[in-house]
């Protein structure tokens, strides 16, 4: 007799669940966290109904734990993301992301005359406002605001 197939998408034993990602930012989050290279099991879900976000996405990562400095990078595209740290099927810690003081890579300078848009250079910004994200380019000193923020 054939066993009924069931996908194990529900709970993870140990790892991190990233919830409240805006649905359209899912693939940016995957890119920023470099999930492509992770060998452990990862589950993505997109376009879940969310009262807060309309459509949200969720990522469950087995055996992955992030340093704040790394996870905070996603704050640019998922400012309301919430993290559940799972140990032995239990949520042992909840975290919210915070926009870091400095952004290296990830974002594009909105100034077309900036050297970073004309030569292969890793972008670098000082965050001058966290609420309405505003980034000051380390090179051209121009400010890129939330409205013009493009993720590389």
């Amino acid at each position: 007799m054939k066993e009924k197939k069931q996908l194990s998408v529900s709970a993870i034993k140990n790892g991190t669940v990233i919830d409240h990602i805006p649905a359209q930012s899912l693939f940016k989050v995957i890119q920023i966290l470099n999930l492509e290279h992770i060998r452990d099991q990862i589950t993505f879900g997109a376009n879940f109904e969310s009262k807060k976000l309309g459509k949200k996405a969720i990522i469950k990562l087995s055996n992955q734990f992030f340093r704040d400095i790394d996870i905070n990078k996603i704050a640019l595209v998922a400012p309301q993301a919430k993290l559940n740290i799972i140990k032995d099927y239990e949520v042992v810690e909840k975290k919210v992301v915070e926009v870091p003081n400095e952004i290296i890579g990830i974002a594009k300078c909105m100034n077309p005359q900036c050297i970073t848009n004309n030569e292969e250079i890793v972008t670098k910004f000082t965050v001058i406002s966290k609420e309405n994200v505003a980034l000051k380019c380390h090179y051209c000193e121009r400010i890129t605001d939330q409205e013009h923020l493009v993720i590389l």
Binding site: C114, I115, E141
Partner: peptide, 28 residues
């Protein structure tokens, strides 16, 4: 002197001698 903004900052990071910015676009 360079027409692109931020070019002098970048040059100062890759150069092994000091750099004086004589104008980088509309920046400094």
């Amino acid at each position: 002197r360079h027409p692109l903004e931020g070019s002098a900052k970048y040059a100062s990071e890759v150069a092994t001698v000091p750099v004086i910015n004589a104008g980088d676009g509309a920046n400094q």
